[in-house]
Design a protein around this nucleic acid. Sequence first.
DNA 1: GTGAAAGCGCTAACAA
DNA 2: TTGTTAGCGCTTTCAC
Lengths: 348, 348
Amino acid sequence: MSDTRRRSASAVPTIRDVAQLAGVSIGTASKALNGTGQLRPETRARVMASAQQLSFRPNDLAHSLHRGQSFTVGVISNDSFGRFGMPIVEGLEECLSDSRISVFMCNATDDPQREARHVESLLGKRVDGIVVTGRRADRREPLRVAVAGLPVIYAFSQTDAPDALCLLPDDEGAAFLAADHLIRLGRRRIAHVTGPERFEAVRLRRAGYQEALAQAGVADDAAPVLTGEWSEAWGRDALQRLFDADRAAPDAIFCGNDQIARGVIDGLRERGVTVPDDVSVVGFDNWRIIAEATRPPLTTIDMNLKELGREAGRRLIELIAGKRHTGVHRLPCSLVVRASCGAPQPPT
Amino acid sequence: MSDTRRRSASAVPTIRDVAQLAGVSIGTASKALNGTGQLRPETRARVMASAQQLSFRPNDLAHSLHRGQSFTVGVISNDSFGRFGMPIVEGLEECLSDSRISVFMCNATDDPQREARHVESLLGKRVDGIVVTGRRADRREPLRVAVAGLPVIYAFSQTDAPDALCLLPDDEGAAFLAADHLIRLGRRRIAHVTGPERFEAVRLRRAGYQEALAQAGVADDAAPVLTGEWSEAWGRDALQRLFDADRAAPDAIFCGNDQIARGVIDGLRERGVTVPDDVSVVGFDNWRIIAEATRPPLTTIDMNLKELGREAGRRLIELIAGKRHTGVHRLPCSLVVRASCGAPQPPT
DNA sequence: GTGAAAGCGCTAACAA
DNA sequence: TTGTTAGCGCTTTCAC
């Protein structure tokens, strides 16, 4: 044990070693290294040189202990860092690392017990804040942190606690964007094929879509909404229903995600319907592996999740600095135009 | 500042507070809380009760400072935690969190400067070890850590440093598995459609595939290899070439990844060739979003990356404990059987 | 301009 | 069985 300590102590120089080598006191060395206080330039230089020579690296643990701030935050994910959690964490980490804050990664996989253990561990590590991220399927219980005043942000996740800060994509605005794009392209019979009703995202996207159609004066029966699974198979299935129905076939289809859109496009091709000439298709997610592989490539909504992660980072930094943020914030999404909608054309 | 300190000091109780409330000394409280030394049960209970009451949580920073071990490790990824990095990190985190080790997440995105900054930061945090993970496209430079004896593991990443420990999937064995499966199914004209030659994985997979065919006595001209991009489009393209060529069409196709396989399957369907009756198809990666969406669902290789992450965690723990590990280790992959190969049938 | 020393929260060795 | 204290590495106030 003392063996271990001894070894690491000899391997990693402390400020004491630097001071000694430079022939100054520890206090002086500290001032020199941190650029604080008044020091003779020559002394400062000597200390810096010694530090360099020993490749001295200050011990953040000691610094944090003293400072009462650890410059670390924790991320608790329930998405196993999957499709959605990943870019968020990426943006978050990018933003925080610019402020020299490190990120602890915790995967709870929807197991409350695991989550609790991770929170405990993060509190032990004295993190300066916690970001909770998830699959957004539904509101979750607020994170049980027993420490008053510890900043917590819900990113792509939501809770009802009144003072919680939640960051989410603006699904409604995004859907409006998509539908509006189709309208501007001259489409007037715009169907919506989407996922299970129980997802708040499904309800919001439908609302945005319907709002856009209403503004354009599109009648309800020219705007059928089909809900099903988030899968290609459902996209193909829904397409059959749309084209086998009694009413006129749609000239555009706004899909709840890219997988559905892919199924729809495949279905159209197999029916001999041309995309985008006969029917325009818009997806949702900009999951590039899919959106770039459809034939033709898919125009779709990007939720800008990396930017959402960055925003979470910025907000967290502000919370740590003592600012207060609460409420649910919806961040803008954008439309990524590829070939599945065709060029603008006059209204039919 | 001292304001901040004061606040957090009052919010988070220290062992001193616990000791005071229990009416014992700090040393006694420490023994009680850590279960060390000899204590009267009643005293121990009193301390525990006080700790409970104050919801005391030991400060790991102080503990680490004293102990010279931080119980944290860093992960440096160059994959932006994408398709491959993600499950590895997941397995790693799962394994390490069982040993109460926390994971710092760093994304370097192939920028050596960012990587260096992250290493610096991790060293400052006195991590007990570092895991490097990447896209495995090629050997990388060894991680420049200026600290002697700091354990480093390369997971899904590789370097030439002789004492480095690298964990990789056994591509060759996996390809053998795939090709052997096709042979056992009675296939004898087995094509291989794969990615760019510059990937070591491509070369290894080809070798495994050819080894299996050689063992089965399949002639070279019944085993064409086509290299191209890692894309669906290439899969479709390659399929045309295979079927438009002079030689007999293949009765099985082993693909370098699932995207290619999807292109191949789509191409086959569009030609009216039935999978698996006429042609069996095997993919590689078990990227479920693709493998489960092909028609029929895709039999494919799973690289067991999560398990690779776990293994990295176990090895890292051993390295930290002082054990030595070096060399390149190839971990077994497995075949996930779905519907794209058909049931076994006698050799034709 | 520089040095000495207290203290961040905890553990472990030594005293009592 | 319990208390006291030195020290982990660093910063910062206060003397000199």
